[in-house]
Design a protein around this nucleic acid. Sequence first.
DNA 1: ATTGTGGTTTCTTTATTTATGAAATGACTG
DNA 2: CAGTCATTTCATAAATAAAGAAACCACAAT
Lengths: 124, 124
Amino acid sequence: MNLLNNNSLEDICEIRSVNQEGVQAALEGMPDNGDILSLADTFKVLADPTRLRIIAALSSQELCVCDLALILNITGSAVSHQLRIMRGQRIVTYRKEGKIAYYTLDDEHIEALFSVGLKHVTER
Amino acid sequence: MNLLNNNSLEDICEIRSVNQEGVQAALEGMPDNGDILSLADTFKVLADPTRLRIIAALSSQELCVCDLALILNITGSAVSHQLRIMRGQRIVTYRKEGKIAYYTLDDEHIEALFSVGLKHVTER
DNA sequence: ATTGTGGTTTCTTTATTTATGAAATGACTG
DNA sequence: CAGTCATTTCATAAATAAAGAAACCACAAT
């Protein structure tokens, strides 16, 4: 960080506003900062091909770690790494039956994000 | 990379399937690989607080770079950097009026992703 | 109790990524 | 030409992140 260049309000506030009302409205409508950070974390989890393939695989059924590893052609450890990250943002949940863990998508939001996103990239 | 450990199909294929039909279904339903990569890139763009604030600011109105800089309290250059990334994944578009560029969200998918995502992190 | 198996976790390394500032450049206006 | 909004190139410093190895946990069966 550059301690000599004391960049703060003085500098920023010299910027002229083109549309002051718009600026005001945007500032008032801005979501809570914590929510913005959480949302970024959620999207971060979705921003990986392996995890997206996990979501695709789980979008119509529950699957165990072992079968996910088969589908993705990666090790069980790697799958477990990713699932842990996904659990952290409530992308997936699981139920345990004996020693087998069956994973599913956590809620309908996840399917919506996946399908809307896929529509965005495939359309046009 | 470990060249001695020639890890490939031989190893992977020894994994036993718990639910063979489920594996088959998942493999058949798996989206195109290119689409998965694009989708990951799109979510990557959404996975940043600054860019999410830009989306929030633009969610009800168009704004110029200058006013976005004011709202976010960062330099015009930094805003421009982010907008370029966002244009790259068709998150935003702009129209030019004289020397001023007015940005808007590219399509309804973006607002949907933002609002569903926000719902996911704020609910519960 | 011991063995085997599905799953998780810790630790580590390597690589990649990324945000942003500075400064040059463009484009338009008066 | 001078001034302003915006973009871009270049560079750096910092953060992140994916995944293997190996240890470990829980459960089931022998």
